[in-house]
């Protein structure tokens, strides 16, 4: 894995992107504005599912109307995110906050997938009763986990736990997968 990422980071495109004066900040800004589009429209649906916003409109109607914006926003996030990762693959691979962010995204997407599957089954004939309760729970999980994704994402910018700044506590080096030699570790 690390060998591949080192090769990737050494490619011409990756170096050009990292050293660019305008491309990198522009891609990063697009990633931030994508937060407003993607997470903003996710939040609209979650507020309705939780029963605390947009309450005069049916929940499935709100989700259906927001879907194209959620999906296009997700596309913007993935595209710009992959480019940012490509600009410095080894650094992000060993970043504690990046790893936390990827784990949290997995949880948030899994939550959305499980909720939609349960809702579909429920609509077909009540195979899964109690959707009203799980809708509130799914919305609460979604809002909490996506907020943590944003926080973890913003903190990637800070190198408190970077592998090349040693000594770090043992658990940091372990979680970040830092290739620490015996001589360098405290």
């Amino acid at each position: 894995m690390r060998g591949f990422l080192e090769w990737l980071g050494g490619t011409e495109g990756s170096r050009a992107l990292l050293e660019s004066q305008y491309a990198w900040p522009l891609i990063e800004s697009a990633h931030v504005m994508g937060v407003a589009l993607f997470l903003g429209t996710v939040i609209v649906g979650d507020l309705r599912l939780a029963g605390i916003g947009f309450t005069s409109i049916r929940p499935d109607e709100v989700l259906r109307r927001m879907r194209p914006f959620v999906l296009s926003g997700f596309g913007v996030m993935v595209l710009t995110g992959v480019l940012i990762f490509y600009s410095n693959p080894v650094r992000y691979y060993h970043d504690l906050f990046f790893r936390a962010k990827m784990g949290l995204i997995f949880v948030a997407v899994l939550n959305a997938f499980l909720f939609h599957r349960a809702a579909r089954l429920g609509n077909r004939g009540g195979v899964r009763p109690g959707i009203a309760v799980s809708a509130w729970g799914a919305a609460a999980i979604s809002l909490t986990v996506w907020a943590l994704v944003v926080v973890a994402g913003r903190l990637i910018a800070y190198n408190w736990f970077a592998c090349d700044i040693q000594p770090q506590p043992g658990w940091v080096n372990k979680l970040a997968g830092c290739p620490v030699t015996a001589a360098a570790s405290p």
Binding site: A36, L37, G40, V44, W146, L155
Partner: peptide, 20 residues
Amino acid sequence: PILEAVHLVGLALLGAAVLA
């Protein structure tokens, strides 16, 4: 960093209220 991160979470909520 924490202020920045919460500011960004606020942006998502603002995005919801503005975009909807």
